[in-house]
Design a protein around this nucleic acid. Structure first.
Lengths: 117, 117
DNA sequence: GTCAAACTTTGATTGCTGTCGTACTTCGAC
DNA sequence: GTCGAAGTACGACAGCAATCAAAGTTTGAC
């Protein structure tokens, strides 16, 4: 398979800059479904704490790589992170300000909340 | 079935004041799992808007009665509502202040968030 | 060119959870 | 007492979402 269209010049096989949704199209339902998973919250916390872009690989997660990919995908679709490639690494950044503009106080409350008892 | 123990005097069959958890035992995970369901958020919004206790029946929900019971149960277990009986009606109140003490800003952000596009 | 690193894609599995209908309980009214 | 209203309990079922392993893609280094 991988029936790529005839390659012309430097166009990558797939879009290496994946689509990022407009925050105005994100529903509260979608945002909460993204944030209810503890692994995804761990990612959000790591990005928030880092304050800079991080490649997927440097965020320690208790799941396999394919599952991690899945989680990053969900976060991107929910408008929580922005992704772009640097070499073979996919860099991730929190879309904190945009998200807060859409859902004021939500991200702040979550990163501030105690994660365990 | 319904093999109730021999009733003695006025003791109700089941505890008519169901157990309410201490907010300190509620995890963020539990709170979010409760709040991720749109029907349950609808209940929370209704109680928040009413500002007073409401019986289950007066909150219009797009589900059957047994499902509604389930949702109230989940909200109670997550420390979001307090329930007590008045006659055959079960009254529900938001545990807003206690919840906010445990997870500052979370409930506020959710009730303030736009629910649809 | 080859190779390894870093992800991604696909397909399968598995467990959870929201839903319902039915039967049951409790209470107030009569 | 009987009856209806308001919920609850109990299975059962269906759909979804998290997970993994295996194979594939893309890039930079050599």
């Amino acid at each position: 398979m991988a029936r790529t269209a005839p390659r012309t010049g430097s166009t990558p096989t797939r879009d290496r800059v994946p689509p990022h949704p407009d925050l105005r199209t994100i529903t509260l339902q979608q945002a909460l479904e993204a944030l209810v998973d503890p692994v995804r919250r761990q990612i959000v916390r790591a990005l928030h704490a880092a304050g800079e872009d991080l490649p997927c690989g440097v965020i320690e997660l208790p799941v396999g790589k394919s599952t991690a990919t899945h989680h990053f995908h969900v976060l991107r679709e929910a408008g929580l992170i922005r992704q772009h490639y640097v070499g073979t690494s996919r860099m991730n950044a929190l879309r904190g300000e945009e998200f807060t503009e859409r859902f004021p106080g939500l991200l702040e409350a979550l990163v501030a909340a105690p994660e365990q008892l």
